[in-house]
């Protein structure tokens, strides 16, 4: 299969849908059965659908699958497995960083990219200076993760899990 009219999902090429209305989120869940990525609001407000596209976190509900010809998408299924979880997946379990778990895949995809952004020196609205190095403080994590809503309110443990992985004392 050539890269033309395909999108790579967790390393596997997939043909783009014929109907241009299909969001990347609906392609993942309904066409490919990758139901780890969740649909919450479907309007970019909750972050449950967060995935990585070419390493960058986006809301998969607010983008059309056909716009991702040749892109590399990573979903929660691509970050780790039950047997071999990623550091963030392990930390979320250890810190009990959820209640119902519905927002968790989006939280973990988002946090995965967020730690890279901090390492790259990207500032946030909570940063005192626009120039790095950036801190992994509670205030920074809360601001940088504001696109991921947790209706159960597990935020305190989510922040602790992220700080564990960042090597910061929670």
């Amino acid at each position: 299969m050539s890269s033309e009219n395909t999108v790579s999902i967790n390393g596997q090429p997939h043909a783009l849908p014929d109907d241009p209305r299909v969001s990347l989120l609906d392609m993942l869940r309904h066409h490919l059965g990758l139901t780890g990525t969740k649909k919450g609001c479907d309007h970019g407000q909750c972050g449950a659908c967060t995935v990585l596209v070419n390493g960058v976190r986006i809301n998969s509900c607010l983008t059309l699958a056909v716009m991702h010809d040749g892109d590399e998408v990573t979903t929660i299924e691509g970050l780790g497995t039950a047997e071999n979880p990623s550091a963030l997946q392990r930390a979320f379990v250890e810190r009990d960083a959820y209640q119902c778990g519905y927002c968790t895949p989006g939280q973990i995809c988002s946090a995965t990219a967020m730690l890279d952004e901090i390492a790259a020196g990207w500032p946030s609205d909570a940063s005192d200076s626009l120039d790095g190095p950036m801190e992994v403080s509670t205030e920074e994590i809360r601001e940088r993760m504001s696109g991921n809503i947790c209706r159960c309110g597990a935020y305190a443990n989510i922040v602790d899990a992220i700080r564990d992985v960042a090597g910061e004392p929670a």
Partner: peptide, 11 residues
């Protein structure tokens, strides 16, 4: 940086 979320600003 005061607007939207990182996911939205990335797009």
């Amino acid at each position: 940086l005061a607007g939207a979320t990182q996911q939205l600003r990335n797009r």
